[in-house]
Each structure stands twice: as C-alpha cells, then as structure tokens.
Design a binder for these strands. Structure first.
Ligand SMILES: NC(=O)c1ccc[n+]([C@@H]2O[C@H](COP(=O)([O-])OP(=O)(O)OC[C@H]3O[C@@H](n4cnc5c(N)ncnc54)[C@H](O)[C@@H]3O)[C@@H](O)[C@H]2O)c1
Ligand SMILES: NC(=O)c1ccc[n+]([C@@H]2O[C@H](COP(=O)([O-])OP(=O)(O)OC[C@H]3O[C@@H](n4cnc5c(N)ncnc54)[C@H](O)[C@@H]3O)[C@@H](O)[C@H]2O)c1
Lengths: 217, 217
DNA sequence: ACGAAAGTGTTAAAGCGTTCACAATCTCGT
DNA sequence: ACGAGATTGTGAACGCTTTAACACTTTCGT
C-alpha cells in the first residue's frame, strides 16, 4: 500500500496475483479459513515460502488457526489495487493478439484492454472481444490513459512500435515478441518468450532427469 | 551433452535457447565473430553473466577476440539437441491453442506439434496450421512418440487431462491454464500464467518505481 | 477447564544466481 | 616484431530466495 512496499522481494510480488486468485476461489466456495499447508498444495509453493510471503505484510494469520479467508481476500484486494483498473493497449491483432482479445482478462483482474492496433486495413474498425481495432498510424491518438501495452506484432516491427509507445508515455510493456526491445529505464518490460519456454522445457527434460516416484509440482 | 550437464545452473539453461536464437541470426547475417558485450546488448543479459554461462561448457571463446559465431552455433546446436525433434501434442484448440497451431514453432526449433485434441465435435478432423485435430476421447490412441504436451484447455479440465497425459506416458507439460496441476515428480510441468504475468507487471509498475533516465532492458 | 493438536511468524542457515574486477591471453595495426 | 588494446574466464563478494526448524500462541474436543 504505502511507500514501504518497496521492501517486498520481487519473488514474493510475483506470487501475489497467484495467491489472490486462489483465495478468491476459496471465498466463492464459501470456505472460511485456510492454512499455509492447504494453500501450498493448491498453488504449488512451499508452505514456508507462503508464510514468509504473507509475513512481509505483517501478521495476517492466527497461530493454531490459519488465515481467515475473508480477511485475506480484502487485504489482497487492497494490496493488489484490485479496485483501480489499469488500462491496456494491445498492438498486433494476429494469432496471439486475437486470442488475448477474446480472453476476458477482466475476470478477477484489475486490467482492461481498452484498445487494439493493427496495420492491416481489413482489421481496422472491427471489434474483437469487444475491443475496437484502430490503425497503427493512429496510435498516438488513442493512448490517453493507457499505461501498459501488450506487444504481439512480428518481431521485426517490435522495436519501432516500442519507440512510439515510449514516446506516447507508456509505463510498462508485456512483450511476446522474440525481439528484446530497448527502452528507457523508466519503462518496465517483461518478456514472455513462448518459443524459449518450450525449448527450455525440452532441454530440462533431456538434461535434468526427475525422480521416479510420488506427486510433486 | 554428457551426464555432467546436470551441473549447469537452471538459470543458465533457461537462457540457452535465447542465446542460440541470436547466434543463429548472427550466422545468417554472415557475422563471423561476436563479443560477450555485443551479445549482451542484443539479448539484454549482463555480459559477465553470458561469459559465465558459456564457461560452464568450457572455454568457448578466445581472449582478446571474442567468440567465433560458427563454432558457437555448432556447439549450441549439439548442446540443445537441435538435430533430434521432440514431438508435441496440443490439448484444447480454442483461442490460445489455435494461435499456437498457426504459429510455426519449427522455426529454428527442435520441437514439432504433431497432433492436437479438442472436445468440440465440429473441430474434429479439421487441420489447423497443418496439425490434425483429434477427439479428446481418443487421446491415448495418438500419443505414441509424444513426449511433451501443451495444455490450453479450460482450467476446470486441466487436472483430468493431466492425469490422462501422465497415464499415456508424457514427460513434460507446458501448462497455460491457471490451474496448478498435480503430477508425479517424474513429469516436469512448466506453468505459464499469462494473467499473472500481466498482474505482476502492473504491481511492479505501481510499487517499484524505475529510474527517470537512460536506456535499459 | 485442560491438554493435545494445529499452525503461525521468524531466526538462522543453506542455496542459487549475479556481478565485480582483474590477471591472463590473444589480436592487429604499424 | 611489438605494444596498445581488446576480451575472455573466473575467484570472490554480494544479494536475493528458499527451506528448515521451532518457540510460541491459539484452537477445540472432551
Ligand atoms: N502465435 C504464437 O503462438 C507465437 C508463439 C511465440 C511467439 N510469438 C510471437 O508473437 C508475435 C505475434 O505472433 P502471431 O502469431 O500473432 O503473429 P501474426 O502474424 O499472426 O500477427 C501479427 C499481427 O501484427 C500486425 N502487424 C504487423 N506489423 C504491424 C505494425 N507495424 N503495427 C501494428 N500491427 C502490425 C499484423 O497485421 C498481424 O495482425 C510474433 O512476434 C511472434 O514471433 C507468437
Ligand atoms: N486466451 C488467453 O488469452 C488466455 C490468457 C490467460 C490464460 N488462458 C488460459 O488458457 C486456457 C485456454 O484459453 P482459451 O482462451 O484458449 O480458451 P478457449 O475456451 O477458447 O479454448 C479451450 C478449448 O478447449 C476445449 N476443451 C474444453 N474441454 C476440453 C477437454 N476436456 N478436452 C479437450 N479439449 C477441451 C474447448 O473445446 C476449447 O476449444 C484457459 O485455461 C485459460 O484460462 C488463456
């Protein structure tokens, strides 16, 4: 909530949305309490890690009891700013872009794709998943209030678009392009490289043999 | 290559496909040599980290010179087993699944989606991106030689399908579902949770202010 | 009303990954 | 043939993350 939040480890911050979603599920199932052990099994994170994560925010639970679901939920809602909505633009309405537009990122989410852009004329003016598609040439005209961009254009176009997004005052970019884009350090970029993820999985399979028993991840 | 590969840190292993792809680009551009500094700027990984990563495989470079692109390429090709192809199945031909099928994962890749499955009758028998779609009921009939599965079904179906995949002898699963699936520890699961990625980016933007100058990531 | 069971919060340690910094080595132009 | 310049490979320090372990607190059934 306050400035002191900067103390929360990045690894913890990345798990918060995961916790939030699961706690939300518990709540709609009418569950009243939950232990770090139960949570651990559901989200596949060590229970000690969960307790540690929660403890950064103070004492959220009760010894011998666990955590009150309703309290946890309202706490996370505040912490993750579930009330304010972040406006998102999507650039590149191709295979991936279309999938994202059709998917409702609003479910339990504080983000909303407000506008999409593409270069192909036949796409312009259409709506996909309720989101209007504008021409990329008009990017600057429709970026008011947009703080995050999802980049699903061909990799050759990525840097050029990124430059324009920066110029238009973007704060964060979720980049699905294989291109590693260069931006000022005031802009945060997260790369999600699906081909690399698949390759890495294959590499791990071949080189890091796993046990032969029991349940895990 | 050999058994000693188990010594390579996981963080390094995850970067290998990234290096490989970029070295491949350099090679097709006819570039003969490259330094860790150049590589660093391109893939946005600290140059010391790159040198350290490479050093796990021995001395791949020459002091005062850098790395020979051709040598590096052939080395990575061997190391990442770019020769053998891994057969992949995709389960759930919806928004995301269709995007993946249309995308050619074979570009510079040692993976190939051989078969897809869905539950909707109208989909069965069609081909998407050249991949035939079978009925999920026939899963077991078409899993011969498949070692990796991409899971893009609704989250409610994820665990059930995962169980059947395990039964059918799967080695690895790339799970795009929000559900955290439970499998024997002999099966490797990588979760890619797109909603969480977006939420995490937003959280970082709000709570981890960045510099106001210069270029970065 | 009590004692066993449950389960947190945290201290301490171990594990992992990144980065610094530089000696050692090689290159290349003159 | 040489010396200035380039660039690697790595020991050591550092910082971040996970995990173990347990004292302490609360619950809850009897
Ligand atoms: N689809 C996948 O499964 C997949 C997997 C891994 C990586 N990727 C990466 O994601 C990106 C998108 O993939 P895709 O399969 O959706 O590609 P795609 O070709 O289907 O879509 C790209 C879209 O961007 C539009 N576009 C092109 N230039 C543009 C510009 N300058 N401004 C605005 N729009 C522009 C095109 O008209 C098209 O609609 C690519 O970089 C690809 O490498 C995709
Ligand atoms: N599309 C996105 O942008 C996005 C983003 C984040 C997460 N996800 C997750 O990815 C998954 C897929 O998303 P989507 O948008 O493609 O959904 P979707 O509904 O478009 O596709 C799901 C597909 O799975 C098929 N299916 C349903 N039950 C099945 C079964 N038992 N066996 C085989 N196939 C079955 C459906 O027929 C459908 O074609 C979901 O779990 C979703 O939460 C998607």
């Amino acid at each position: 909530m306050d400035i002191e939040n900067a103390k929360i480890p990045q690894a913890t911050a990345k798990r918060l949305p995961l916790y939030y979603r699961f706690i939300n599920n518990l709540h709609s199932q009418g569950k009243m309490r939950v232990s770090s052990k139960e949570l651990s099994e559901a989200v596949k994170v060590d229970s000690a890690t969960i307790r540690r994560d929660f403890s950064y925010f103070g004492a959220l639970g009760k010894k011998g009891y666990g955590y009150n679901v309703e309290y946890l939920l309202s706490f996370f809602r505040k912490t993750l700013d579930q009330d304010e909505t972040t406006s998102v633009a999507l650039i590149g309405v191709g295979n991936l872009g279309t999938a994202f537009l059709n998917y409702n990122f609003m479910k339990n989410n504080n983000t909303k794709i407000e506008v999409a852009f593409d270069a192909r004329d036949e796409r312009i003016g259409q709506k996909v998943g309720g989101v209007p598609i504008k021409h990329i040439d008009d990017l600057e005209k429709h970026m008011e209030g947009i703080s995050v961009a999802i980049l699903t254009v061909p990799s050759s176009a990525a840097q050029g678009i990124a430059d324009r997004l920066v110029e238009a005052g973007i704060s964060g970019v979720l980049n699905f392009t294989p291109a590693r884009i260069t931006v000022p350090s005031s802009v945060r970029v997260h790369h999600i490289d699906l081909a690399v993820e698949l390759q890495a999985l294959v590499y791990f399979l071949k080189h890091y043999p796993l046990d032969e028993e029991e349940d895990s991840q």
